[in-house]
Design a protein around this nucleic acid. Structure first.
Lengths: 247, 247
DNA sequence: CGGCTGATTGATGACCGTCAATGAAGGTGG
DNA sequence: CCACCTTCATTGACGGTCATCAATCAGCCG
């Protein structure tokens, strides 16, 4: 399945039409796919996307679209959580990012989606046909710049994620991940971990066992407390930030 | 130095003004920062950036700007090669990407550059004040979309790089890297490696020793041939593609 | 030709992946 | 409402890949 993607990637990346990307469209939001981001802010009262397409509730663990599918729409997460990932031919998976309320995906200039999108929890999704988005961009020049801003935000997050994947240790990766989740929630001490350990692992370039062991160590060191229901308490934010080693 | 960046990253990613990103602005180009990209195509005869700012030749191994510097201009590589990287507080480095002719950097909505840019070889760089770019975006709505397209291309490349960093073995990483370089050159069998082993290592999340050993193994297996002057021959493209494992 | 920088090769070991077993939690049906 | 089953998290033992430390080698410039 990713054979096509591989070929496309090897050939020059010149693609006509829309590219597949993920980005946050909440004004002032910032990060989306790769890292964590804002999403806490109330949506723009003058939300230019309001009313476009239509919203639908999806159950947990369902596929929204797959790598290689024809890309006809863009999506915006209204509530819940979505994971985006790419797979290698042999099944190894890399989760590009987790999306939350306000984040967009599928916005792109390619004929096909370049990653798979699945719900983690039950999720409300606004689906916007590309034609409608195009029309909006034509009608409101400022909107195109907003998209550009959101996309560059994504790119920044992606670059931070490269640092994490390429140069951080397991402990640093996990600490960074937890802090990002918290920051995204406005710095709350208690954060939500709706995704499973293997999702976290595939996002951080680790295995479930290593994630689990690392969390246990953080727990033993009194840096975090693991609560029931997939919740988690950041007990010592400063120590976690030290551990995270920047970003 | 990266303290500021760290804080900025932890705080909500909402930033007014331009973000710092890298992208290819050659029409039909595609990849830039993270991966390899086009750059082979002749520049658009109707290059909207032509004549903006002014070009300058920089010697090899010089810094163009650093992470945290005030971001007043965007840059376009006309010839030569540039590396972009981020550093962790303790000095570990992740090279975000190598830029070649046609690629842009510094295009962004942030007050500061988020990574450091250095020349690898002697390089001609077009420096364009942000104000001029803004004016161009206002004057030519189509140009904003071109920037959006280029940025989403970057994002795609960044996502491929995440897969590489998070889920590939050393051999797969090196093979992928070589194939990307070749593809960027239009699929040439002989490619140029102007950057040092440690640059490659810091791009692939490895050490110089591992890069060297891996290249030696590829040489022993007759998949590549190492030539003088930083050049390299891809002897068995198919075998390399198998090794690369997609992308 | 000598000295410097970077690449290569070797020896060793740590971190984290793999394989495996146990434990906890949630969902379903009796 | 509880027992069973399935799924996922945790913990343990072990091994491999790649990092680290170190020495030699090759290329380049003065």
């Amino acid at each position: 399945m990713s054979t096509h993607a591989a070929i496309a990637a090897h050939a020059n990346r010149a693609v006509p039409g829309y590219l597949v990307s993920a980005l946050a469209m909440t004004p002032n939001s910032g990060m989306g796919a790769s890292g964590m981001g804002a999403a806490i802010q109330p949506r723009n009262p003058a939300d230019p996307l309001a009313g476009l397409g239509h919203a639908k509730v999806h159950e947990r663990e369902t596929t929204l679209f797959s790598e290689g599918d024809a890309a006809g729409s863009v999506f915006r997460v209204m509530s819940g959580m979505v994971r985006l990932y790419k797979m290698l031919p042999d099944g190894r998976r890399q989760i590009i990012g987790f999306l939350q309320a306000g984040d967009m995906m599928g916005l792109a200039f390619a004929a096909q989606y370049l990653y798979t999108a699945e719900t983690v929890t039950a999720t409300t999704i606004q689906r916007i046909p590309r034609l409608e988005l195009d029309a909006l961009m034509d009608a409101q020049p400022a909107f195109a710049r907003k998209l550009l801003s959101a996309t560059t935000s994504e790119l920044m997050a992606a670059q931070d994620q490269m640092v994490l994947l390429g140069r951080k240790t397991a402990a640093e990766k996990v600490a960074t991940f937890l802090l990002r989740l918290s920051d995204r929630r406005g710095g709350e001490q208690t954060i939500d971990l709706p995704m499973g350990r293997s999702d976290i692992a595939d996002h951080l370039g680790l295995t479930t066992e290593t994630v689990s062991r690392t969390l246990t160590k953080l727990k033993s060191s009194r840096l975090i407390r693991i609560l029931v229901g997939g919740k988690l308490d950041l007990l010592d934010r400063d120590a976690l930030a030290d551990l995270a080693g920047g970003f």
